[in-house]
């Protein structure tokens, strides 16, 4: 026996996108936006950790020349060499550094990929208001993530080419391993110094929203301690900003010099 059927109205009922076919765990996590945000938060924390450590390491620039094995050497260069020799002799030279580099690169790529796909999803879901919006909670940091992110990424490319690979940009003066000298030379160019400052302001803004947001995305939440999440975001972003911006200024002011 068949029943007469009636179809419900269908318009807003239709999904914007299909449910993806489930990949095996844990890849399935990354198939959802909430999962992607989770990955973005974890990779974000890794990258913030790197930026913070990088800044602290760079503070060695202020130590200038120190005595090492009876000779004078730049502390920064020694620090760079130590990184290359991490866990030697348990591991061969450079291996640990490369593992870290690959890990960081992987985190970076995942961070960028998740940001890109989530942005596309959001842009497709949003329908712009035709009138003026009046935002209450969304601040400059949160609304500029899709701008500060690419700025930082572009700067990173330049920065790696300039001071790690020595490609093209600092030709002539670049000597692999002479980190201190390379930095002084590179940041001694006002255009590079200004670019460095702008990029680091972008980094700080990105990190300020990123840290708070990452806690939220990971579900690290306790109404009693939630004020600490904002506080941590402000503190870390502030420390990184002050530390990093101080380097080009110090170079230009000849506080850090050869």
């Amino acid at each position: 026996m068949s029943l007469p059927t009636t179809t419900p109205r269908n318009s807003g009922d239709l999904p914007m996108r299909d449910k993806p076919r489930q990949l095996p765990f844990p890849l399935s996590i990354y198939q959802s936006a909430v999962g992607k945000k989770w990955v973005m938060a974890i990779t974000g924390f890794i990258l913030v950790g790197f930026v913070l450590a990088h800044m602290i390491g760079n503070l060695k620039l202020y130590l200038g020349l120190v005595e090492h094995n009876g000779a004078l050497a730049y502390d920064t260069d020694l620090y760079a060499e130590a990184l290359r020799e991490l866990l030697v002799p348990i591991m061969p030279r450079l291996v640990v550094l490369w593992i870290l580099r690959i890990g960081l690169l992987g985190a970076l790529l995942l961070h960028i990929h998740s940001a890109y796909t989530l942005s596309r999803m959001s842009l497709a879901s949003d329908f712009k208001y035709q009138g003026k919006r009046d935002f209450l909670a969304a601040n400059f940091a949160s609304r500029s993530m899709r701008v500060t992110g690419p700025i930082v990424a572009l700067y990173l490319v330049f920065h790696l080419a300039d001071l790690t690979l020595g490609f093209g940009i600092a030709t002539g003066e670049f000597v692999r391993g002479d980190v201190y000298a390379n930095v002084v030379y590179s940041l001694g160019r006002p255009v590079v110094a200004i670019g460095y400052i702008i990029a680091n302001i972008a980094v700080a803004i990105h990190i300020y929203h990123g840290i708070w947001s990452a806690f939220q995305s990971l579900g690290i939440n306790n109404p009693k301690y939630n004020y600490l999440r904002r506080l941590a975001a402000k503190a870390v972003a502030g420390i990184i900003l002050v530390g990093n911006v101080s380097f080009p200024i110090a170079v230009l002011a000849n506080i850090i010099s050869l």
């Binding site: 999904p15 914007m16 996108r17 299909d18 449910k19 959802s32 936006a33 909430v34 992607k36 945000k37 989530l118 942005s119 999803m121 959001s122 842009l123 497709a124 879901s125 949003d126 935002f135 209450l136 909670a137 969304a138 601040n139 949160s142 609304r143 993530m145 929203h209 708070w212 947001s213 939220q216 995305s217």
Partner: peptide, 18 residues
């Protein structure tokens, strides 16, 4: 959550909703 994501965008923690 999976159904929500079929219709809506991704959260960037602006806090505008609350």
């Amino acid at each position: 959550v999976d159904t929500m994501e079929q219709f809506f965008g991704a959260c960037t923690n602006h806090g505008e909703c609350a």
